[in-house]
């Protein structure tokens, strides 16, 4: 099944880096750029929803526009030996021409119309 390639340009493209210490909230920024000539709806998903606040966690990006997402890692006891397995996914779909409401858009979306990109989370301590 040929999946649609992600239309958005993600920066960073693969890894979200969080620099400690992790005794307070640590924020990583993810920029989504829409190089196409169509409006693109996005929503952010993660394997660890209770560990992060994501703002905005969904929205619509106009043609040629970009949006900056703040990914806020909540404080936790960092274990340097434990490699983070958290992942993020940016799921996107071209906005329909008729302004249907956002929820039905995602509910009725056909798998072939969905695009997604996955990012890993990388934790690093400030170099001593």
């Amino acid at each position: 099944m040929s999946k649609l390639d992600q239309v958005l340009i993600l920066d960073p493209p693969c890894d979200l880096r969080f620099k400690g210490p992790f005794t307070d909230v640590v924020t990583a920024n993810l920029k989504l750029k829409n190089p196409s000539d169509r409006r693109v709806c996005f929503k952010v998903k993660t394997t660890a929803p209770r560990r992060y606040c994501v703002r905005p966690n969904s929205g619509v990006i106009d043609p040629g526009a970009a949006v900056n997402i703040s990914v806020m890692l909540q404080p936790f006891d960092y274990d340097p030996n434990e490699k983070s397995k958290h992942k993020f996914m940016v799921q996107t779909i071209f906005a329909p021409s008729n302004n249907s409401d956002n929820d039905s858009l995602w509910k009725d979306a056909k798998p072939d119309d969905l695009m997604d990109s996955k990012l890993r989370c990388v934790f690093e301590m400030p170099s001593e």
């Binding site: 998903k45 993660t46 606040c53 806020m72 996914m89």
Partner: peptide, 14 residues
């Protein structure tokens, strides 16, 4: 390859 990860909608409030 199928990834074993299970994704949930991210939340905007802690």
């Amino acid at each position: 390859a199928l990834s074993e990860d299970e994704f949930h909608d991210a939340v905007s409030e802690s």
